[in-house]
Amino acid sequence: MSHVLTVAGKEFHCYFKTPVGSIFLFFFLLLCGLFFFFVPDYFSLGEASLRRFFDLLPWVYLFFAPAVAMKMWAEERKIGTIETLLTRPVADHRIVLGKFLASFGLLVVALALTAPIPLLVAFTAASPVDVGPVLTGYLGAALLGAVYIAISLFASALTESQIVAFILGLVLCFFFFVIGLPDVVGIFPRALAEFLTDLSLGGHFANIQRGVVDTRDLLYYATMLTVFLLLNVLAVRRRA
């Protein structure tokens, strides 16, 4: 465990050693703010809905997660530090976990910084806002984010180019997100549609957004997370 934390600590520290981490956070908040307030016009709607905030999060993640994870393995391969890293007496999966925790940590910080949005909604709403759904919304958002990060981290382990890692991560995340959207699912036969919804990130997120924390959804996120972290370990073992 201490190895995991050592790696996570170093990677998290690196986000803020350069302006990169702050830039990611800035753009995350900028996108959230823009989407929330202006698309469609928040002020003309007259009423604030947190639903909309959680609806747009997966779209913001689509850029945020691949961006924060792209460097993790690609850069190690490119500059060769991967050789030092993987020849220290630490099992590969601990390093993968450490890197995951660092990226996930940044995502949690980003989510925490969106707190003014529900607060604003609470202050301006006509009727009192229920705290429960907001909290489950954030829980779901964190879980969804974790899977996005795991997918993006896996993409980063496949290449030594950060750009390729970013694009690959974005495409993979996008794929797992859109296969569950109603518009997309609609074109498939019923059975396949259900399967795709079950497999998709969005379908499960919708449940949690409604304030329902179902063990099936939790299980789904845990499975996706495990699968992509394991794929990550395998990708890292592919040395040459």
Binding site: T6, C14, K17, I79, T84
Partner: peptide, 26 residues
């Protein structure tokens, strides 16, 4: 093991580099 061309993390400080190497070695 010192790999070819001594790859290091550019953004870390010299002491940070050594401490990290030490910590990860327990």
């Amino acid at each position: 093991y010192l790999p070819e061309s001594a790859p290091l993390y550019e953004e870390l400080g010299v002491l940070e580099t050594l401490r990290y190497a030490g910590r990860i070695r327990g």
